[in-house]
Amino acid sequence: MSTHILRRTLIACGAAMLAAGPAFADEASSYPNKPVTIVVGYPAGGSTDLVGRLVANEIEKHLGQTVVIENLGGAGGAIGAQKVVNAKPDGYTLLVGANNEIAIANQINQSIKYKITDFTPIGVVAAQPMVLVASAKAGVKNTAEFVAAVKANPAKFSYGSSGVGTALHLAGEMMKDQGKINMQHVPYRGVPALTNDVLGNNIEYGVFVLSSGLPLIKAGKVTAIGTTEAKRYAATPDIPALAETAEFKNVDINSWFAMMGPAGMPAPVVAKIKAALDKTMAAPEFRKKMEDAGVQVMDSNIDAGKYINGEIGKYKQIIDAAKIEL
């Protein structure tokens, strides 16, 4: 390309950017002037859907616009996440997603092409521990009995999760690695199938998010062995943390939920959404509904990008050690 042509091209590109700039700025300054869609990558009724709907119900008060939920299930949340990645980065299509589709799926499934850099992190909304439970078939009542039984019978017992590469699966593999125990992993197609087999005594152990496992524990249908965060969960003080024991002292993993947008969102739009999300997370009614569901609202001052990148590194260690892939 000649110098003359290159110069004309650069001038033309610059003119186009200048022409688009005011329109882009006007669009950002008037945000939001139409309904906002929050995509949830799961069918209605699950924990991510619950968080997404509670966020939508509250945040629309602070955005001054209708906020609607679009459930787009499939591929463990990845289909919904991909839609948001592909959306126009104008703030009208957002994701309320879990660590499964945001930070884990693309590490184990080569068919998932999006990366964390394809999102704009807005805020980490909430988190809850997972809980290891024992079925009646297992016949154990606490961590000491669990460890003794499993170590005495290597590879004899199994634990179930809601699927390969889910946070529940990674929690189970972290327990196995930290505790030097040998159990078989049985992946299920979602929590309902896992629940049926645990209650039916077809499998000895199961890993659940606390909000799914707690009703079973309270009803006496399963025995809680321990939760998976570093400290005992405030909402369930009677359930010990696995990390309270010597065998599992380094077990620290949870299930978290974050609001994300497509990469390239204008900073003023991100700031408006973040301000509305902060007010949502501070609202007493919102916090109570989340806590009643067994989910803890996070500190709104957490830097979502840094937090998620730290979690990605943690998951990579588990995935590599356990050789998890799809």
Rank of each mutant, 00 (worst) to 15 (best):
S2T: 13
S2M: 03
T9M: 09
T9K: 09
I11L: 13
C13N: 11
A15R: 04
L18V: 12
D26S: 09
P35S: 02
T37V: 14
T37M: 11
I38K: 10
V39C: 03
S47I: 06
T48A: 13
T48R: 00
G52A: 12
R53K: 14
E60P: 04
K61M: 03
G64C: 05
V67W: 10
V67D: 10
V67N: 09
V67T: 05
G74H: 07
A75S: 12
I79K: 15
G80K: 02
A81K: 09
A87S: 15
N100I: 01
N100Q: 12
N100S: 12
I104N: 05
I104R: 02
N109R: 15
S111A: 11
D118I: 05
F119H: 04
I122V: 15
I122N: 06
V125C: 01
M130R: 04
V133Y: 08
G139C: 06
K151L: 01
N153I: 00
N153E: 09
Y159W: 09
V164L: 14
V164D: 13
G165H: 10
L168E: 15
H169Y: 07
A171V: 07
M174I: 12
D177P: 00
D177N: 08
K180A: 14
Q184T: 15
V186D: 12
P187H: 09
G190L: 08
P192W: 04
P192K: 05
N196I: 05
D197M: 03
V207S: 08
V209M: 01
K221N: 10
T223Q: 14
T223A: 12
A224P: 12
I225W: 01
G226R: 05
G226Q: 12
E229Y: 03
E229V: 07
R232P: 09
A235Q: 10
A235K: 03
I239A: 04
L242R: 00
K249A: 14
N250D: 15
A258P: 07
P268L: 08
A271R: 09
I273S: 02
A276L: 05
M281C: 08
A282M: 12
A283M: 11
R287L: 02
V295D: 10
M298A: 11
M298D: 12
M298Q: 13
D299V: 02
S300P: 02
D303K: 07
A304E: 11
Y307C: 04
Y315M: 13
I319S: 03
I324D: 06
E325C: 03
E325K: 15
